[in-house]
Amino acid sequence: MSKTNGWLNSNTFHHAEFRDLQRLVDEKERLGLTISLCIPTLNEEATIGKEVVVFRSELQQRYPLLDEIAVIDSGSSDRTLEVAAAFGADTYLASEILPHLEPKRGKGENLWKAIYQLRGDIIVYIDADIKNIHPRFVYGLVAPLVYRPEVKYVKAFYDRPLAAGGGVRPTGGGRVTEILIRPLFSLFFPELSFIIQPLSGEYAVRREVLEAIPFPIGYGVETSHLLDVYTRWGIEAFAQTDLDQRVHFNQPTLSLGRMSFAIMQTFLSRAESLGVVGGLPELNRVLRQFQARDDEYEAVEFAFTEDERPPMIEVAEYRTKRSTSNG
């Protein structure tokens, strides 16, 4: 593990290291990079306006780090797109990007379609439900890609002190990370267990990586990214940045159960195709949860099949668009 300990030291950052935004913009311009921000949404009218304003004023008007800010929506029933557009974001309905494809609905679908729609050499994905929004959520993730050419994929992690004392401050992920993902990674992909918050929804990635990996459309997208990038480029391709606190809406345990069920499907299918586990039976795709009603328990069943989009580079329209824009 000494190699990974070295990785932990050299590829783990704190956003404060990158607070000299003028230097970051100068380096970005020297390298001729373009950077796109993608915010995937579904009914986020409460928080989307401030995210767009904060990123636009700080990271476009004051410091031209971002070349575009795009909101890609799954079909909100509220005013998410109207609010985002009013504050200056480019807004898209996921279903209207590559419209001839069979429609799929999920966060991963929006992230995948962003690769086609947006023009950046780097795409940074930020969730729309952040309550304490700050420019660091973007520049903290983008900066390692600008300063370190060998880094391809930067994950966010957050300060979540579980207890304090004795000079040790445990920093970890959420419940699904600590109960499911970290034990699985520790068993089968130990180097990936050094990623502090593998399920965080904020990351920045080079286009050459994004276009080359498949995208589960649901909860499994972050897990599959880590496995696919690790398999192809190794742990050295990753970096992670401490973005301090992220305040968001906590999910109830039953929702986390459904999330875990989808992630397990992704993990097991990847592990099997990589030959890490074998002889798996056909997996049951129905999750059964229970709720109490008066004196009786009632089973609620959720059927999940984690659908997946292929690597974008395999989509003919994408290759045409890129060759046209590059030509």
């Binding site: 304003v53 904060v54 004023s57 700080e58 008007q61 004051r62 929004i133």
Partner: peptide, 13 residues
């Protein structure tokens, strides 16, 4: 206006 609103959002939170 965007800069002022940005400052307002950040300080008010």
């Amino acid at each position: 206006e965007d800069i002022l609103l940005t400052n307002l959002v950040m300080v008010a939170e």
